[in-house]
Design a protein around this nucleic acid. Structure first.
Lengths: 193, 193
DNA sequence: CGTGGAGTTGAATACGATCAACACCGGTGG
DNA sequence: CCACCGGTGTTGATCGTATTCAACTCCACG
């Protein structure tokens, strides 16, 4: 999964020529840890497909606390897609957590790929629907599960990310404070002694 | 917005003939309040476009508590789309809250409409992206806002639904208990005296 | 009339937030 | 090489918010 082109190739049966056209839309850039690719409040210009490294998107609330919306390791697309497509200022800020190589996808990329994929039974919608499923699960978890349960689910669902991001960021993804997560971990360690 | 066809017509420039083909895929049915159109754990067969009435989708947790995932008044589509498209048992149960007239859309409907809409710059993806935006906001609210703030947001965002569903269901949408919502309302009433 | 669901209210409890202190590195510079 | 530092994570005490459980009112509906 070195490029989003691979993702599209894998899900569809595009002619090589069509693929070339998409290929031309893609711009690859490298960023250092700590870089903000996009800031909340501005109109987003791109989506980002992660070739290497790790990114996250987050919001800052009125009290200055950050809440992680998603993590994006290799092979993931990260953006405020709604804001991009509907020309709105985005809520999300996108930050590089590990030095990264990303493909920049502009609005046109999606329009073009949608047109092309018409002959295929699979297309960009499937990616959107998958993301929908993730959101659905997350909403349900936030409403119905305790912090401990959400943490346990995170561990099993994203074991790789566990290894790569500081716990305090995972806490902001789970919707709790770093201190609360620490105590949950303490409790869990006790139980398994 | 009497039919999903209107929605498609509004967002696209399909030929009348193409529209007829879609039209044929649609089946209209009426259901009484209390009917379960789909039950959690089963493979969903349809999505539902609401012509009249009001539906909701929800999950039941281990303790038997219900958590409302979404409300769907006139003009909305409700389903566990991910489960439908990816042939998985769904998490959601879909319930009729007000006697309803709905259009049944099967999996093929989406495939066909995707193919057709290729010539248009707008298509089913936009609907998905809009839904994505709603989810994004909801996740952020659940993580960062207090129950009171979420309730106030609900009132302003969905004033119509406020009038139509019992408070206890709104509570399960907000991720709190009916008692907690009642107390929040009590507090708010006091403040505005 | 009753009966049951919806909504409110209160008391006790549980869970996570907040605030503060401290241990534990992994640099960086003297 | 070591002292110092900032960031990360842990732990404890206290506070606040929502849950739980229970009682009670108010209607709509039989």
């Amino acid at each position: 999964m070195a490029s989003i082109i691979d993702l599209i190739r894998q899900e569809t049966k595009l002619a090589p020529k069509a693929i070339d056209i998409l290929q031309d839309q893609i711009q690859v850039k490298q960023y250092l840890k700590g870089t903000l690719l996009h800031q909340s409040g501005y109109f987003p210009a791109k989506s980002y497909f992660v070739q290497q490294g790790l990114l996250r998107s987050f919001v800052s609330d009125a009290k200055g606390k950050e809440h992680t919306f998603m993590f994006a390791p290799e092979g993931w697309i990260i953006s405020d897609l709604g804001a991009l497509v509907f020309k709105q200022p985005s809520q999300l800020t996108i930050e590089v957590l590990e030095d990264a190589k990303v493909e920049l996808l502009n609005d046109d990329f999606f329009k073009i790929s949608e047109g092309m994929l018409s002959t295929s039974t699979l297309n960009i919608s499937k990616l959107l629907i998958k993301r929908n499923m993730v959101h659905q699960k997350r909403i349900i978890m936030l409403m119905s599960a305790t912090a401990t349960e959400r943490y346990q689910d995170f561990i099993t669902t994203y074991p790789d990310i566990m290894q790569r991001v500081p716990l305090k960021m995972i806490a902001t993804y789970l919707g709790i404070t770093p201190e609360a997560l620490s105590k949950i971990r303490g409790e869990m360690a006790k139980r398994n002694t």
